[in-house]
Computed example of a mutant assay.
Amino acid sequence: MPRFNTHKILGRFAAALAAVSLCAFAGMAQAEAAHETSAAKSWQTGLHRTDLVKRDLGVSDREVIQVRVDFEPGVAAPRHSHPGVEVAYVISGTFQYQLEGQPAVTLNAGDSLYIPEGTAHTATNIGTTAGSELATYIVKKDTPLVVLQK
């Protein structure tokens, strides 16, 4: 008649459970790393800018620039600032804006937001479909429009 060695069975069960847990943890870590890598790259392929207007304001050092920015779902613009003010108007979709030193704000189609000069911020399409914003800038001439921040 066979005898069961409880310690041996429990030891094997514990080893199997540890192996499964380790594999699951490693898989989650790989998936998270892949997600972070794709998220880091996604703004470069998931944002599409269409320049609409660029005009001198008649003031020696200022111009107005208007741009349509289309975001694929889940895409976030990197943290950045502008050498002047921005007024963002949501054409379609749902966006979350995070301005430095302020709580996050969620805007839907028809909502707008004023972003002061030099304020670091991000914009994320938190909706499940493509979203668009109309960005109007009043900025210093001959200065890069977007300054990436850390």
Rank of each mutant, 00 (worst) to 15 (best):
P2M: 06
R3F: 04
F4A: 08
T6I: 12
H7S: 10
K8N: 08
I9A: 04
I9D: 05
A16W: 09
S21Q: 05
C23F: 15
G27C: 07
M28W: 12
M28K: 10
Q30L: 14
A33G: 11
A34G: 01
A34I: 12
T37S: 14
S38K: 11
S38V: 05
A39F: 13
A40H: 13
K41I: 11
K41L: 15
W43N: 15
G46V: 00
L47A: 14
L47K: 13
H48M: 14
R49Y: 15
R49A: 14
D51P: 10
D51A: 14
L57C: 12
L57D: 14
V59I: 15
S60T: 12
S60W: 07
D61H: 09
D61K: 11
E63H: 10
V64Y: 04
I65V: 15
V67E: 01
R68D: 11
P73E: 15
G74Y: 09
V75Q: 01
A76W: 00
A77D: 04
H82F: 10
P83A: 13
G84E: 04
V85M: 14
E86W: 06
E86F: 11
T94R: 05
F95N: 04
Q96S: 02
L99A: 10
E100R: 07
E100A: 13
Q102F: 09
Q102G: 07
A104M: 12
T106S: 01
N108R: 09
G110P: 01
S112Y: 12
Y114D: 15
E117P: 02
G118C: 08
G118R: 00
N125Q: 02
T128F: 00
A130V: 07
A130P: 10
G131C: 03
S132G: 07
Y137N: 02
V139I: 09
V139P: 02
D142G: 07
D142N: 10
K150I: 00
